[in-house]
């Protein structure tokens, strides 16, 4: 082999080799609504699809609208347990927070602090009794009681054979009347179904 050709070939090979060895990660900013399915597990796209569908369902519920007409005030909602009954570690608080945000911003309901949030607020109120001025300290035992509790769950169904797996997500949400235990609204989303084909070979 001609020495020059060999030298040129070696240089090209080294250049190709090192071009694949970057020391810093490559970051590309994408729109938050861009679909990025990497592993087949629950991701931001699923949260968006599920939340939008359930929120729309809830906001257009005639029974929720009827409450305001009957009582002359907005219904007050508290977020209860949104259970993860799936086979993945899903942070369900993202779904409930999205629902809370959308419902508050729609002006169709008010929310009160959930069980996990209110202890901090109660501590603050208690502190105010000792340390704040009389005219700014907030009264104790004056909390707003919720009319409805929002609860729900995420379940998965998995089927797998060889290199192909299907994952179907069932998301349920419901509003329950705190006083009567009546369910005034139920929503579900069963749109998320993924077929995951694992490649048999890689280099």
């Amino acid at each position: 082999m001609n020495k020059n050709v060999f030298f040129a070939f070696s240089l090209i090979s080294l250049a190709v080799l090192f071009s694949g060895c970057s020391s810093s990660p490559q970051v590309t900013r994408v729109s938050s609504d861009k679909q990025t399915d990497l592993s087949g597990y629950w991701n931001d796209t699923d949260v968006r699809i599920v939340s939008e569908s359930i929120i729309n369902d809830c906001l257009s519920s005639p029974r929720v609208a009827q409450f305001q007409k009957d009582k002359g005030k907005l219904p007050v909602v508290i977020v209860g347990t949104f259970k993860n009954d799936s086979d993945e570690h899903i942070d369900t608080s993202i779904i409930t927070k999205k629902m809370e945000t959308a419902i508050i911003n729609s002006g169709k309901a008010d929310f009160v602090a959930s069980k996990s949030e209110r202890s901090e607020i109660r501590d603050e109120r208690q502190e105010q009794q000792s340390w704040s001025s009389e005219d700014t300290a907030k009264a104790i035992a004056n909390e707003t009681g919720a009319d409805f509790m929002l609860i729900g769950s995420v379940k998965t169904m998995v089927d797998k054979a060889g290199k192909v797996a299907t994952r179907t997500y069932y998301v349920y949400a419901e509003l329950i009347d705190v006083e009567t235990n009546k369910k005034i609204w139920m929503g579900s989303n069963e749109e998320i179904k993924k077929v995951i084909k694992t490649p048999g070979a890689k280099l």
Binding site: N84, D87, E88, T156, K160, G162
Partner: peptide
């Protein structure tokens, strides 16, 4: 406990798959 249940469900799914693997 909720996350512990997630792991138990994963066991169940894997056992179903082993027989056909």
């Amino acid at each position: 406990i909720e996350d512990a249940f997630v792991e138990i469900r994963r066991v169940d799914n894997k056992l179903k798959f082993i027989a056909t693997k």
